[in-house]
């Protein structure tokens, strides 16, 4: 393992080298510090009902957990980021399995978790060949091992739930982890995660302000066309502007690429959210879990990253490449 790889994986000395990372941390710190003061001021002015106050505080405390969860591993290094994405995938699968009932099929669940662990290993090793090969191999293994239960009734459902889960939480999230193999991974991931989170906030604010026509009322009754378009415009503008500092001096640092990347983040972010909403409606549940007060489960918070990560990964990969200057197969050699 050469010095640059070791530094990328475990080095924290360069964590704050990029100004975008520093500014993001400062802004987040300021927001977290200001929010309680705002709540107290609104409370003192009598402009917050007790129910709203309780809801806002519970959401605030959840963000106190989310923000270190999202940005802590990125600051610590690529190894921590990849491990955190692997753990996120497994925990999201747990929520999905409990909601769909897939947890009652232990062999399928084991193979899905094994697949996620292997994707995490391939990512850590920077072995793109294995990373790609794991999709058909794990799908085959899920289908083959489901035979062992010797229960043809419900076989398609068992296998399909396992495959969908692996593709969503192993492969799609795996692309988020694989971005950590890029030399420039810290600003890249901070930009992507911040854009996706802001996309949700922009959709909420513009939807509340201007939304009349429902977007897909049976799937997500609170989402409006105005919210979706507002998020598209604002997120594209934000991601393109900030993206300029992330992709400075690369082939992607052109208005066309930056706007396309911004639009891609917004559209795929909203599609990820709507996809998980569709699954929830099909299951007849409101939240994936009750882990985080005011938010629900991890999947309720991180659903927008599901499609945004692979879309951004392959866009960057096609025009510029991801991790090309980093040594591949750092553990397995070859």
């Amino acid at each position: 393992m050469d010095d640059s790889t070791r530094q990328r994986l475990f080095g924290v000395t360069h964590a704050l080298d990029h100004p975008l990372v520093v500014y993001t941390l400062v802004v987040l710190g300021a927001l977290l510090a200001a929010a309680p003061l705002l709540f107290l001021a609104l409370s003192a002015a009598g402009k917050m009902s007790p129910a709203l106050r309780k809801d806002l505080w519970s959401r605030y405390f959840s963000w106190l957990v989310f923000i270190p969860m999202m940005f802590g591993p990125v600051l610590l290094g690529a190894a921590w980021t990849i491990a955190a994405v692997g753990v996120l995938g497994i925990l999201c699968y747990r929520e999905f399995a409990r909601a769909t009932g897939a947890f009652r099929f232990p062999i399928t669940s084991f193979v899905v978790v094994l697949g996620i662990v292997m994707v995490t290993f391939a990512t850590f090793d920077h072995w793109y060949g294995l990373f790609v090969a794991l999709t058909p191999l794990t799908i085959g293994l899920i289908a083959a091992t489901a035979i062992l239960a010797d229960q043809p009734k419900g076989y398609i459902q068992r296998v399909a739930l396992g495959i969908v889960a692996f593709l969503l939480f192993g492969v799609c999230y795996g692309h988020l982890g694989y971005l950590a193999n890029d030399t420039n991974f810290r600003p890249l991931l901070v930009w992507l995660v911040a854009s996706v989170e802001l996309n949700d906030i922009f959709a909420y604010i513009t939807g509340k302000s201007f939304g009349r026509r429902k977007l897909v009322p049976n799937t997500s009754p609170n989402k409006t066309v105005a919210g979706a378009l507002g998020a598209l415009v604002l997120t594209t503008a934000f991601a393109a502007c900030i993206g300029h500092f992330v992709f400075r001096s690369t082939v992607l640092d052109t208005p066309v690429h930056l706007v396309t990347l911004g639009a891609l983040v917004s559209i795929t972010g909203q599609l990820g959210d709507l996809t998980l909403s569709s699954i929830k409606r099909d299951l007849g549940i409101k939240d994936w879990a009750a882990t985080f007060p005011g938010h629900g489960g991890l999947l309720d918070r991180f659903n927008s990253l599901l499609f945004a990560a692979p879309a951004v990964f392959h866009y960057i990969g096609y025009f510029q490449g991801v991790g090309l200057t980093q040594h591949p197969r750092i553990m397995t050699g070859g």
Binding site: A99, T100, L283
Partner: peptide, 15 residues
């Protein structure tokens, strides 16, 4: 039709 059977304790906090 597919029949989903969510965990009986879905939606309960850990405690």
């Amino acid at each position: 039709d597919w029949r989903y059977k969510p965990a009986r304790d879905l939606g309960l906090p850990l405690g």
